[in-house]
């Protein structure tokens, strides 16, 4: 095959030291700028649709019901815990304790999976019970239809990021188990961590906009 270049997984390779960090880290940061702008576009759309005079936008707590908000608040807590677990993965890896790092990585992944399950439950409930007008014209909507539409596109796009993050972390976990990711590959875990914390951060924004205010 064709010319292969220096590996991007390990530390800085030849010609990669201008800023003293790996290419991968810069790549992830720049990617996150891009991703943040995608969410910014969606959130700007949300803001414009909601804060227009006469938009007939419901107050989220009334529309979701108190239980809905509390369930999602718990879900937020789970995602933050998962982020904390990710910090521990890196911390243990840097100290060379790969066993503990694997354990915390499993905790990170489980946190992501719990988040997705609760969100799946919430979506099912909303589609079937709360918003029957979506797929059945026999029902009438009580408020702006975009309340549901923006909810789905924002939480759905974020949920997709969580799902990708779970897969990403699982691949790293498998690498740890097979010995491909060792205590020397801290940048691999650090870069995955950047993504995972970003997904967490975005959720705080989405949660605030869609559920709280």
């Amino acid at each position: 095959m064709a010319a292969q270049n220096a590996s991007v997984m390990a530390g800085p390779g030849p010609g990669e030291e201008s800023l003293g960090v790996t290419n991968g880290k810069i790549g992830m940061w720049t990617f996150l700028v891009m991703d943040a702008m995608t969410f910014a576009g969606l959130l700007a759309g949300y803001a414009r649709l909601r804060w227009t005079p006469g938009s007939d936008w419901p107050f989220p707590i009334e529309a979701f019901g108190v239980v809905g908000i509390q369930l999602t608040a718990f879900n937020t807590f789970v995602l933050i815990c998962s982020s904390v677990a990710m910090v521990h993965v890196l911390a243990y890896q840097m100290r060379g304790n790969m066993k503990a790092a694997q354990g915390w990585m499993i905790a990170t992944i489980v946190g992501g999976l719990i988040f997705l399950s609760i969100q799946g439950f919430e979506w099912t409930h909303l589609i079937l019970d709360k918003w029957p007008f979506l797929f059945d014209s026999g029902y009438e909507a009580k408020y702006n239809l975009n309340f549901a539409a923006t909810f789905f596109i924002l939480t759905g796009f974020h949920g997709m990021h969580v799902a990708i993050g779970v897969i990403y972390n699982t691949i790293i976990l498998m690498g740890m188990r097979s010995g491909k990711v060792t205590e020397e590959h801290t940048s691999t875990v650090e870069i995955a961590g950047l993504y995972w914390h970003f997904v967490d951060l975005i959720w705080i924004l989405v949660f605030t906009f869609v559920y709280l205010i």
């Binding site: 891009m34 702008m37 995608t38 910014a40 759309g45």
Partner: peptide
């Protein structure tokens, strides 16, 4: 990096 994703978000909304 900063502009294209905004088009993507608009096109996603349009697609849906």
């Amino acid at each position: 990096l900063a502009a294209t994703p905004v088009l993507t978000s608009a096109l996603l909304m349009l697609t849906f």
